[in-house]
Amino acid sequence: MSDGLRARATAGLERLVGASVLERLALSVTALFASLLVGALLLLASGYDPMFVYYYLFYGAVGTPFNVALTLQQMTLLLLTGLAVAVSFRAGLFNIGTQGQLVLGALATALTVLAVAPLVPGGLVGGLVLIPLGLLVGAVVGGAYGAIPGALKAYADANEVITTIMLNFIATGIAFYLVNNYFRVSSTVATENVPGYAKLQPILFHPSSSFSLLVFVATLALALGVYYMFKNTSFGYELRTSGLQPAAASYAGVDAERMTVASMTLSGAIGGLAGAVYVLMVEGRYIAPPSLGFDGITVSILAGNNPLGVVPAALLFGVLKSGGLTVGFETDVPPELIGVLRGLIILFVAMPEFFRMLGGWAGVADRDPVATDGGESDGAEADSGGGDDA
């Protein structure tokens, strides 16, 4: 590569890394329209009318109250798994095990609610007991399962990518074995349904929508809380420095090993909470969840591992998931082509963030500068254009 070309590439990466919030938003919107254009050309080449397909894609996401509820349901679940991944990634750890934490959190929630239900009265009182209990158990079990790779990383220097991937298989196997051999009540590998009063009920939406507006609002509040924790609390500062700058963390008196375990525990707890919500809001029983944990990785990366950025990223995924279902039902477009369209949209929207990450890896700029005095260095923050505030 010539010096001139290398200089232009470096300047371009510096511009992307230092882009302001509005500039990054404009890039994402432009990338979205570019993906729709490329998708339209692909559909035309495949013999399908792109306007017809896109109509059902977006109608399926927001065309009716039921479709809106389905979109928000998917968004809620993906927001939780995206937050779980973002917490670990912001701490410099790669939690690929959110799916396993979600699975065990969901199973523990279902079994706990079914076990305790006969001991409490039904109706409102039963719901006030069983719903918080189920959510708490899901978070605790997910957090405990997330703490395992955290401890292995902190005290045995085990690679968390490998351990979390392996723990996904273990969690899935444990859940299948227990349900299939001890808690199965029909030909489907699933537990019996939890009592109706123990489910998270829809508000303003039809009961068949399996979407609770209350959970959606609480999940948005959780995203704000996680953002505030990382930005304004000493605990959040210690989580970031222990993973991103261990030397600076030790100099500041931070116990890096303890914070590694804490970050993976918190990440796992949010993943387990997603499993609890899946049981109590969507299915009403334990049945093997879809790959929400793996989707959460993509959501987090698309959001730049920013807890606030996870909100629009989860919304985009929710729209594509629910809209894709309608396209599959209402058109003769093959499911594989629908998957390609979804992948194109995600790829194009993620490209600006990919180049920003590439710039950070190449040493073009520090994406998340951390001062050793417990706060972010003002000069570095200014240089980065406030990129983490998106």
Rank of each mutant, 00 (worst) to 15 (best):
G271A: 15
S291K: 12
L316V: 14
N305R: 12
L325R: 14
V261T: 06
M281Q: 12
T326F: 15
G328P: 09
L266W: 05
D295G: 09
S267R: 09
I287D: 06
G309L: 00
A262E: 00
V277N: 06
V310P: 00
P335T: 11
G296Q: 02
A269W: 02
P334L: 09
I338R: 00
L337W: 08
P290L: 06
E336Y: 11
F294C: 05
A303G: 10
V310E: 02
P335C: 15
Y286F: 14
Y286C: 08
I297M: 13
L320M: 08
F317L: 11
I301S: 10
V261L: 07
L315F: 14
A288V: 13
T265L: 10
A313V: 06
L302E: 02
L302P: 00
G272E: 03
A288I: 11
G324S: 12
T265I: 06
L308T: 09
A269N: 07
E283W: 08
A313F: 04
A262S: 13
P312G: 09
P290T: 05
L308K: 12
G272K: 02
P307E: 03
V327L: 03
L292Y: 11
N306K: 08
I301Q: 09
G318P: 10
V299S: 05
L273N: 01
F294M: 12
V310G: 01
P290V: 02
T326R: 12
V310T: 09
L320R: 01
T331F: 08
P307W: 02
P312H: 09
Y278F: 15
L320W: 03
V319W: 00
I297V: 14
V282G: 05
I287W: 07
I297H: 04
I270N: 01
L292V: 10
A276F: 07
T326A: 10
G304A: 08
G271P: 01
T331I: 04
S263R: 08
L325C: 07
P290C: 08
S267A: 13
A262L: 13
G275K: 02
D295K: 15
I297P: 05
P312V: 05
I338P: 00
T265W: 04
L280M: 13
V327K: 00
L337E: 04
G272R: 02
P290F: 06
I338Q: 03
M281R: 02
I287K: 14
A314G: 11
F317S: 01
V277C: 11
V311N: 03
T326M: 13
L320T: 03
